[in-house]
Amino acid sequence: MVRPYAVTRGRTGTAGQSFDLIAQITAQVPAGVEPPVGPEQAEILDLCRAGPLSVAEIAAEVDLPLGVVRVLLGDLLDASCIRVGRPVPPALLPDEQILREVINGLRAL
């Protein structure tokens, strides 16, 4: 077993990049090309090649603490190996009243 601080080389954060728990991560490494990453990052890339996963799902799948996964994802983003789908800010979501009216309208059909 490798200690989490050894996996991140003692780093506890990324340079200016924070990953939301529900941000969707997708691998964007061309097939046949091996990026210069460690074994933990390679495992993350393998998981994300099948389809987008949230940061929380990745942490659960690789069985590493969330902080460690965020540092590893920051490294992958810096190497242009992943694409991050940001969650929609709550201010841009539709109003709850509009959604209720849509649901009621659908029920009326």
Rank of each mutant, 00 (worst) to 15 (best):
M1W: 05
M1L: 13
V2L: 12
V2G: 10
R3A: 13
R3Q: 10
P4H: 07
Y5V: 14
V7Q: 08
V7N: 04
T8H: 05
R9G: 09
G10D: 01
R11Y: 04
R11V: 02
T12N: 03
T14Q: 07
T14V: 02
G16H: 09
Q17V: 15
S18C: 07
I22L: 08
A23P: 11
A23C: 14
Q24A: 15
I25L: 02
I25Q: 04
T26D: 00
A27D: 11
Q28G: 02
V29W: 01
V29P: 02
G32H: 04
G38Q: 13
G38L: 06
P39H: 09
E40N: 09
Q41T: 10
Q41E: 12
A42V: 01
A42W: 00
E43Y: 02
I44T: 05
I44G: 05
L45D: 00
D46W: 01
D46A: 14
D46L: 10
L47E: 10
C48Q: 10
C48L: 04
R49I: 00
P52I: 05
S54P: 02
A56I: 11
A56V: 11
E57T: 14
I58M: 02
A59E: 06
A60Q: 15
A60W: 06
P65Y: 06
P65G: 09
V68F: 03
V68Y: 01
R70I: 05
R70Y: 04
V71M: 02
V71I: 09
L73P: 12
L73N: 10
G74R: 01
G74F: 00
G74E: 01
D75T: 15
L76Y: 03
A79P: 08
A79E: 09
A79W: 06
A79V: 10
C81E: 02
R83M: 07
R83G: 09
P87Y: 00
V88A: 15
P89E: 10
P89N: 10
P89A: 15
P90E: 14
L92E: 14
L92M: 12
L93Q: 14
P94V: 03
D95L: 11
D95M: 06
E96D: 14
E96F: 01
Q97T: 15
I98Y: 09
I98A: 09
R100W: 03
V102C: 08
V102T: 08
I103K: 12
I103V: 14
N104T: 15
G105S: 15
G105R: 15
G105I: 11
A108I: 07
A108V: 11
A108W: 06
L109G: 12
